[in-house]
Design a protein around this nucleic acid. Sequence first.
DNA 1: CATCGATGTTGAG
DNA 2: TCAACCTCGATGG
Length: 330
Amino acid sequence: MPEGHSVHRIARQFNANFPGKPLQVSSPQGRFTAGAEMLDGDSIVEASAVGKHLFIEFERSEHLHVHLGIYGAWDFVGEVTVDATIASANGWMGQTNQRGTLLTEDEIFDAAGENSLTSIGAPRKSRFRFGEATKEMTAEEWPPEPVGQVRVRLQAVDVLADLRGPTTCEVISASEKLAILDRLGPDPVTTPYDAGLEIFLQRAGSKKAPIGQLLMDQNVIAGIGNVYRAEILFRLGINPYTPGNALSKELLTAIWDDWVRLLPEGIETGQMMTMDDLSESEWIAAMANRDDRHWVYHRAGKPCRVCGTPISLAEMQGRKLYWCANCQQQ
DNA sequence: CATCGATGTTGAG
DNA sequence: TCAACCTCGATGG
């Protein structure tokens, strides 16, 4: 589920808490034993994200390449940095204290209590309780037993990360990493604006495939998934079935511009909040319910928020496609 | 309890 | 086009 913003958040979390620390690397599940042995004892130089791909560079110059697919998620446990972005991803965003200001980091720690805090990826609860991992861990409590199917555990002295459910988890070389980056379309966070726009215009504007399909093609533009696809097209009034080569340069540029805007917002907030200028009641509803954060995604049959027309639903390339047939006619 | 479906991608047919 | 991959929350009995 993780679209591009989640993967950038994971890279950020690794960079905040892991680089330079010697790691015990294991595969509790047993399906990544050989790879774990290659990395065991090494330490992380830096993590990076491009599109939905995560790369973790190790001192011995090997790279752990992870793609979460549709189920994957990382759990971070231990001395985990909790900044506003992490807190927001776990539902604390928008909550205020008695002074009416956003919760401070300490208040989030306290408020978290028994709630999960640091699972990033597929929308599911963390397998660990925040308190037990951060408050004066004893030798018996650390490290916590893996819960569920953990493909790989990266464990430092004071923090660990568990990966479950990835579609890809492999050790690759620098050149193999470059080959992946080479074919990926532009990611607004890692590609300069002008260069990214040029590649997108060329790859999307030259194809007769419907734009709804092109936005899901990671070689055309990187990091967009089913939610952002539906939402961006609605925001710009574009029909998902319009061929890429039938769209004006201005509209294609508007798509790139919208992704340039939405991706950093998603990274900062941890949420795919694709509606703007919400009233207070709309904001509260959106924080409580995913479906209230979107214009059309997951709203088949419900009235369009703009014109009231029932939202359409169809299959495109085996994925659910949502759009408003009235608002999206470009 | 069983079954379904999901913010994804690959490869077989 | 479709099954397979892989995990687990939601849904329905």
